[in-house]
């Protein structure tokens, strides 16, 4: 029997959740902590503790965790993608894809 894969939404405003187990591409992931029950399909391999997008995020849109922006998307991010250094930049980064402000 397949083990339930879970991710935790730390704030209802967030557009990323945290993987509570290692996720494989194609895994159905139950996202807990939101107002409504949400199940999404992982697109990437996502290690424990790493972020998974629970909504599409446009290039330069805010990535929101703990209810606050933790940076901007360096490119379009689709729901189920791993969100990390390859597609997320700090708001205070010097080499910004999205420019300052």
């Amino acid at each position: 029997m397949q083990h339930t894969k879970r991710a935790l939404l730390l704030n209802p405003r967030d557009n990323v959740a945290v993987a509570l187990t290692k996720l494989e591409p194609g895994d159905m992931v139950e996202v807990r902590g939101g107002v409504e029950k949400l199940v999404i399909r992982a697109r990437d391999e996502i290690p424990f503790g790493h972020k998974i997008a629970i909504r599409d995020i446009p290039r330069c849109g805010y990535v929101v965790k703990y209810g606050y922006p933790i940076g901007r998307a360096k490119r379009d991010i689709r729901v189920g993608e791993h969100v990390h250094l390859h597609n997320l930049e700090s708001l205070s980064t010097i080499r910004s894809v999205c420019g300052g402000g």
């Binding site: 730390l10 945290v18 424990f48 703990y66 922006p69 933790i70 250094l85 700090s90 708001l91």
Partner: peptide, 22 residues
């Protein structure tokens, strides 16, 4: 931190500050 899944300094600080609530 990065290996553990933290990408930006904002995210790291928020993860610490959240213990004080909202």
């Amino acid at each position: 931190n990065i290996e553990g899944g933290i990408t930006t300094i904002e995210e790291k600080s928020l993860g610490a500050i959240i213990k004080g609530g909202s």
